[in-house]
Computed example of a mutant assay.
Amino acid sequence: MDRATLIRRSLPYAGAAAVPAAAGTGMWLWAARGLRGPDGFPTVLAAAGGLVLALVALVAQNALFRKEGGIAALVLLLAGLAAAWVEARDSAVRGAVTDCVVVGEIRVTHHPTFGEGAPPPKTLYHHTLDCAGGHPREISAEERIAEPGGTVRIAYDPAGRMDPVPERLNTAHGSPVLPAALLVLSTALTVVALAAEGRTEERRN
Rank of each mutant, 00 (worst) to 15 (best):
M1Q: 08
D2A: 06
R3K: 12
T5V: 05
T5Q: 03
S10C: 07
P12G: 07
Y13F: 15
Y13K: 12
A14I: 15
A14K: 10
A18K: 07
A21L: 11
A21F: 06
A21M: 07
A23V: 08
T25G: 14
G26K: 05
W28T: 09
W30C: 05
A31C: 08
A31H: 03
R33P: 06
L35E: 01
R36C: 07
R36D: 08
R36M: 09
G40E: 03
F41W: 15
V44R: 13
L45C: 09
L45I: 13
A46N: 09
A48G: 12
G50Y: 00
G50P: 03
V52L: 09
V52E: 04
V52A: 13
L53P: 02
L55P: 04
V56L: 04
V56Y: 01
V56R: 03
A60G: 01
Q61K: 05
Q61N: 04
K67R: 15
E68I: 13
A72D: 09
A72G: 12
A73L: 10
L74A: 13
V75P: 08
L78W: 06
L78K: 10
L78I: 09
A79S: 14
G80N: 02
A83E: 02
W85Q: 06
V86H: 05
V86M: 05
V86Y: 03
D90I: 06
S91E: 01
R94N: 09
G95I: 05
G95W: 02
T98I: 03
D99S: 13
C100F: 02
V102W: 00
G104C: 08
G104Q: 07
E105S: 13
H110W: 10
H111C: 05
H111K: 11
P112N: 10
F114W: 13
E116R: 15
E116P: 12
E116S: 14
G117W: 05
A118G: 12
P121Q: 12
T123A: 08
H126P: 08
C131P: 10
G134C: 06
H135W: 12
R137W: 03
R137M: 04
R137E: 03
I139N: 02
I139Q: 01
I139T: 04
S140V: 13
S140T: 15
A141F: 01
A141E: 04
A141S: 06
E142V: 13
I145V: 11
E147H: 11
E147Y: 07
P148E: 08
G149R: 11
V152K: 12
R153H: 13
R153K: 15
I154H: 03
Y156D: 04
Y156M: 08
Y156T: 09
D157R: 07
P158C: 06
R161T: 09
M162N: 10
V165I: 14
L169I: 09
L169V: 10
T171S: 10
A172N: 03
H173V: 08
H173N: 11
S175R: 10
L178Y: 09
P179S: 08
A180Y: 02
L182P: 04
L183G: 00
L183K: 04
S186M: 00
T187E: 00
T187A: 01
A188K: 00
A188C: 02
A188N: 00
V191F: 02
V192K: 12
L194P: 00
L194G: 01
G198D: 01
G198L: 02
R203Q: 14
R203M: 14
R203T: 14
R204C: 10
